[in-house]
Amino acid sequence: MNFIWSFLIILSFVIGAMNGKLSDVVNAILSGAETSVTVAIGLCGVMVFWLGIMKIAEKSGIAEMIARLLKPVAKFLFKDAAHNENAVSNIAMNFSANALGLANAATPMGIKAMEELQKMNKDKESASDSMCMLLAMNTAGFQLIPATVIAILAAAGCKNPTEIIVPTLLVTCFAFVTAILTAKIMQKIFPPQKENEVNNG
């Protein structure tokens, strides 16, 4: 990440200067910084609401029930995190919300799951295998119906925008499986530097 980030910034200045777009680059810093706060504030409301609802789910024991149902799948994907009910139930809901295209609802669930995984993580600055797996599941962007894309196609006058649903589903499944398998393989290639992931959550 250090490399990618500095690469983007240095290259932007160099190429911007070459193209005579240096002032655009500088403006982009200001507008980008503003956007990032807007995005975070936009998240704040749903985040607050969801964490409240999840606290209720936690106390009533329903989170635990969902997690128990999903234990076999969770064990394969998340190994030792599988017995953390709050993590598993939030991961399950995060995945379902993403699949249904409810991105705004999915994010707080994913973050809540991350917090639970962080509790079990020994090295608090370094991502655990389970965290990387959760992230892989999210970056692959599994979605049943690409609603936004269909809407744009329809707006542009496409006769049959829904015909992209099946091909998109095939691609998204392929990317999703690739992400999970890659994360699984990477766990072996890059084991945690310190003894990571505690036994008990």
């Binding site: 973050i111 608090k124 992230l135």
Partner: peptide
Amino acid sequence: SVGIKKYRYAVLTG
């Protein structure tokens, strides 16, 4: 959200 700074192989996987 949880203050992770070392992403390990997460970027590569993504």
